[in-house]
């Protein structure tokens, strides 16, 4: 790890000011990903601004019936929070499927969605990687790419975003609240993470010195029919090969009133396709209809060799997650 200086911010303005003093500053909250990357010299900040004590350690209900998750609340405290468990069980389930109990006790909500990819080449400084070193090339496209993306890739990067929480937040239409030198703004989850295009070094749309302060969840509407299906190499403590956050609203005849399907492990950002969800509206919640939606969601999927299996895996996972969502009891 390179030598660093450190300061503990006392409020959000102080944090932003400290961060803007140098272009080599990084905010640190849980640190579970940043310190890991610093130890392997993938990230080399000169100064760390600790944002754990800037007043965003709350979870509170909003006037509109939604819920605001403070950025520095840990993943464990969020996932086990009674209101989250009761009204946003999809989010709780996704968060508890991630990492280990120890990491969830440190990792924060803001940090979770700021995670960098776990692409092996991104971590290996002896290889080319456009995300780590723009212009150096992508070692994954023609390399070992079993964990890599099948949707929304570019000629410069096929990395996937590793977060489970982000997939659930995307399915629930969460909004990321940020603050920077020029004030506050809100970024819908859809627009927070980006596709790699020709700038894979940019994971998200945060502007310089901006910091996440909280994440807003709209009023709960998927507390009954939901499923977070995470497929991975072992049943605990592993990143998803493919994950599906599925949420449905059904009428009494089991026809679909609303549907939300977000995919993880398949793209540079949580993947959603409104057209595929629209296909289900008004139709019976059956496997045949779910397969149609799955086919549409994956219509542009492309494998790169070792990850070809993900296309069929994702197709089946979408159907299974939706079936689990219809009858949540059956999955317990």
């Amino acid at each position: 790890m390179n030598r660093i200086t450190y300061s503990k911010a006392t409020d959000v303005r102080d944090a932003i000011q400290e961060h803007s003093k140098t272009d080599k500053a990084q905010y640190i909250a849980g640190g579970t990903n940043l310190l890991d990357l610093m130890k392997v010299n993938v990230m080399r900040p000169a100064h760390l601004v600790d944002i754990n004590k800037i007043g965003f350690d709350f979870i509170e209900q909003e006037a509109d019936g939604g819920l605001r998750l403070g950025a520095s609340v840990t993943n464990a405290d969020t996932a086990y929070h009674q209101h989250v468990q009761q009204h946003y069980p999809l989010l709780a389930e996704a968060m508890l499927s991630a990492a280990s109990a120890q990491l969830r006790n440190m990792a924060t909500n803001g940090g979770n969605i700021m995670q960098r990819t776990r692409c092996y080449y991104f971590y290996d400084t002896s290889t080319a990687c456009n995300k780590r070193e723009p212009g150096s090339g992508c070692s994954a496209i023609n390399g070992y790419n079993r964990m890599h993306a099948i949707l929304g890739t570019s000629a410069d990067c096929i990395a996937v975003h590793p977060s489970d929480m982000a997939v659930a937040l995307r399915a629930l239409d969460a909004v990321v609240c940020v603050e920077g030198p020029s004030g506050k703004r809100e970024i819908p989850m859809e627009a927070f993470h980006r596709l790699p295009e020709d700038k894979p070094d940019q994971d998200n749309t945060l502007a310089a010195d901006e910091v996440i302060t909280s994440i807003k969840l709209p009023p709960s509407k998927y507390a009954k029919h939901y499923s977070y299906l995470k497929l991975r190499d072992r049943p605990s403590y592993a990143f998803a090969l493919v994950s599906v956050a599925a949420a449905l609203n059904l009428d009494e005849q089991q026809h679909v009133l609303e549907a939300s399907i977000a995919l993880g492990g398949v793209a540079h950002k949580p993947w959603r396709m409104p057209e595929a969800e629209a296909l289900l509206i008004g139709k019976p919640a059956t496997a045949a209809n779910f397969r149609m939606a799955a086919d549409m969601l994956l219509s542009t999927a492309q494998g790169y060799g070792h990850n070809n299996f993900k296309i069929e895996l994702a197709r089946r996972a979408i159907v299974r997650a939706l079936e689990q969502a219809v009858n949540k009891q059956a999955t317990l």
Binding site: Y6, D36, D50, Q102, M106
Partner: peptide
């Protein structure tokens, strides 16, 4: 932060001692 050998309790909660800075 992958193996858990460094797990300690900090303010009553288990964490990986390797993945946090002492100064924090």
């Amino acid at each position: 932060g992958q193996c858990g050998a460094c797990t300690v309790l900090v303010d009553g909660k288990r964490i990986n001692a390797c993945m946090t800075l002492a100064i924090m």
